[in-house]
Measured scan of single mutants.
Amino acid sequence: GKELVLALYDYQEKSPREVTMKKGDILTLLNSTNKDWWKVEVKATANDKTYERQGFVPAAYVKKL
């Protein structure tokens, strides 16, 4: 199945390749080969529509579930 990670801290994206997350968010882990930056998929809701974004977050800010 898919691997999930838990956001340990809030993170505000600093570039278009990154994604914003809030502490407590559960994210889908896409790639953890880089030890510093993990690629995740974030589900977000805006205007009653759910959309998914993929991007990088600092590996130290998340932990595998």
Score class of each variant (00 low, 15 high):
24 G>P: 01
34 N>H: 11
55 G>K: 01
27 L>C: 07
16 P>R: 09
1 G>L: 12
46 A>V: 15
54 Q>S: 10
36 D>P: 01
8 L>G: 01
56 F>W: 15
63 K>E: 12
61 Y>S: 09
42 V>M: 14
37 W>C: 05
59 A>F: 02
32 S>T: 10
5 V>W: 06
40 V>E: 00
62 V>K: 01
11 Y>L: 01
46 A>I: 15
33 T>H: 10
53 R>H: 06
20 T>K: 04
57 V>P: 00
21 M>Q: 01
63 K>N: 06
16 P>Q: 09
64 K>Q: 08
50 T>P: 12
29 L>R: 00
21 M>N: 02
17 R>P: 05
37 W>Y: 07
53 R>I: 08
24 G>N: 06
38 W>F: 06
55 G>A: 03
55 G>N: 01
20 T>S: 15
65 L>D: 02
56 F>G: 00
27 L>Y: 08
7 A>R: 00
34 N>F: 08
56 F>L: 08
59 A>N: 03
37 W>S: 01
1 G>P: 11
50 T>W: 10
47 N>C: 12
17 R>K: 11
24 G>D: 05
39 K>C: 15
18 E>N: 05
39 K>P: 01
35 K>V: 09
6 L>V: 15
29 L>Y: 03
22 K>P: 00
54 Q>R: 11
37 W>N: 02
28 T>R: 14
65 L>P: 03
8 L>K: 03
26 I>C: 06
47 N>M: 10
43 K>D: 08
25 D>C: 07
2 K>T: 11
52 E>A: 14
1 G>E: 13
51 Y>M: 09
55 G>M: 05
62 V>T: 03
1 G>M: 13
22 K>A: 07
65 L>H: 05
57 V>D: 02
12 Q>F: 15
45 T>C: 13
15 S>E: 07
29 L>D: 00
16 P>L: 08
51 Y>K: 09
28 T>N: 06
35 K>I: 10
40 V>W: 00
32 S>H: 06
8 L>E: 03
51 Y>W: 11
51 Y>R: 08
62 V>G: 01
34 N>R: 08
31 N>D: 15
53 R>D: 03
59 A>L: 03
6 L>P: 01
26 I>Q: 04
24 G>F: 04
30 L>M: 06
52 E>K: 15
